[in-house]
Design a protein around this nucleic acid. Structure first.
Length: 411
RNA sequence: GCGGAUGUAGCUCAGUUGGUUAGAGCGCUGGUUUGUGGUACCAGAUGUCGAGAGUUCGAGUCCCUUCAUCCGCCCCA
């Protein structure tokens, strides 16, 4: 390492970038708390099996993207590549089946060893929700509505499309897989190299391929909807009807499949065309088998997660800092008084920026730079008379008031 | 993991067919008479030209390697 730099695919988050991310997370928290979701924080690393067993051993995340390491006790641990497995593990570990439904939200860093690009990092931040214990479509509708409201509050719903599909229950999924594989086998020679591989590992993914030759084959492939059994069809129809009732606009995408094995029934993605190849900004679905797979009994689940950095990049305007009040002492003997005034203003709830050094002009420039709304100036005259000069930095008007009236004047 | 592009001051970029002490704008620092900013004017600082090796009398400019970023694929948030 010749230069002091952060590890590839990791970034220092500060200033405007951090402010936007903070806004995304706080907006998300406010929205989902109204739906009764409570925050959970699970460890950033788990036993490797938590992810390896549950995400699907053919998924790319498990086969090539996990940061695994052995700790000094010899256990194989993995930096979490996504949030759901950890939350479900916590649910099972803590015996939360006793008190359903359970509604959690979380945010924090995730890690995937991938080639970095715009909107794709090796350490990135997700905000997500999980609703456990409700197997009826109300849960799907509510959770999607929540995602929709979230993006609306961020002012992004004009640039984001809701895409939705159903993978059906296990029976439907297996039936479709069989049909699709049979069809694709017949057209094996027409498929791209990647897709020939995918045929073994994850044939559903071929539906999603961007290769022209694949698209041509997929064009006439059997439709997922035709393989859904009656129960799955009804479930999907109920979800869609619910979304219609709530005025949520969506697009059915019968090629939408998700990368992780644990999904069933409803899957959805919120996508944008503004981030190049990384268009998916929020994604999720139902995972009815996951809890029992972890030994937690037959508990249904549904959730989503969003990429906080990706959403932040869509936020056009800068998130403004609150405008402080600048307290400006003039002359050394006023420092004590200035500090006292600054302190009392802070205790009264104001944002206060103290100026530390320089002549008055410097200090005024500094006040301007931090976008202060008002300046409280205290020099020898003010000190002698127990007054301050209060200046409005937008209008330029200023007046002298007594120190005891300052807080009242500012409110 | 594969393919392509890029890498010059804090930021955005210029730098001609290789030729002396590498530039601009913004920002930063100081000043335009001693208690008044946001506009204006004046002055100033700043770079191992991503790193390493090579060709050459001479490399920011050419070759190679490497690192990083960006774009596409794979995959995904």
């Amino acid at each position: 390492m010749d230069k002091v730099q952060s590890v590839r695919g990791t970034y220092d988050l500060y200033g405007a970038t951090k402010r936007k991310m903070k806004k995304v997370i706080s907006t998300g928290s406010d929205v989902v708390e109204k739906y009764g979701f409570e925050e959970i924080e699970t460890p950033i690393f788990e036993f490797t099996e938590v992810f390896a067993r549950n995400l699907g051993d053919t998924s790319d995340i498990v086969t090539k993207e996990m940061y695994c390491f052995e700790d000094k006790g010899g256990d194989s641990l993995t930096l979490r590549p996504e949030g759901t497995a950890g939350v479900v593990r916590a649910f099972v570990s803590n015996g939360m089946q006793q008190n359903l439904p359970v509604k959690f939200y979380y945010s924090g860093p995730m890690f995937r060893y991938e080639r970095p690009q715009k909107g794709r990092q090796r350490q990135f931040t997700q905000f997500g929700v999980e609703l456990l214990g409700i197997e009826t479509p109300q849960a799907d509708i509510e959770v999607i509505a929540m995602a929709y409201e979230f993006l609306e509050k961020l002012g992004l719903n004009g640039q984001v499309t809701v895409e939705i599909n159903s993978l059906g229950d296990e029976e439907s999924r297996n039936a479709y897989r069989t049909k699709l594989v049979a069809y694709l086998q017949e057209h094996y020679d027409e498929l791209s190299e990647d897709s020939k591989n995918r045929l073994q590992k994850n044939p559903l993914r071929i539906l999603d391929s961007k290769e022209e030759c694949d698209k041509a084959v997929v064009e006439n492939a059997p439709l997922y909807a035709d393989s859904l059994n009656e129960a799955s069809q009804k479930f999907f129809a109920d979800v869609l009807r619910g979304l219609d009732n709530l005025g949520i606009k969506y697009r059915i995408n019968n090629r939408l499949v998700r990368g992780l094995d644990y999904y069933s029934h409803t899957v959805f993605e919120l996508t944008t065309d503004k981030l190049g190849a990384q268009g998916t900004v929020l994604a999720g679905g139902r995972y009815n088998g996951l809890v029992s797979q972890m030994g937690g009994g037959d508990v249904a689940g549904i959730g989503w997660a969003c990429g906080v950095e990706r959403l932040s990049m869509l936020l056009e305007e800068n998130v403004d800092l609150p405008r402080p009040i600048a307290v400006i002492p003039v002359g050394e003997d006023t420092n004590d008084k200035a500090l006292e005034i600054a302190h009392s203003l802070r205790l009264a709830g104001f944002h206060v920026e103290q100026s530390y050094s320089g002549n008055m002009k410097k200090r005024m420039m500094k006040a301007n730079k931090v976008n202060a709304a008002k300046a409280v100036i205290i020099g020898s005259d003010e000190l002698a008379n127990n007054t301050v000069t209060l200046k409005d930095l937008d209008s330029g008007e200023q007046k002298t008031i007594s120190q005891s009236d300052l807080i009242k004047e500012l409110q």
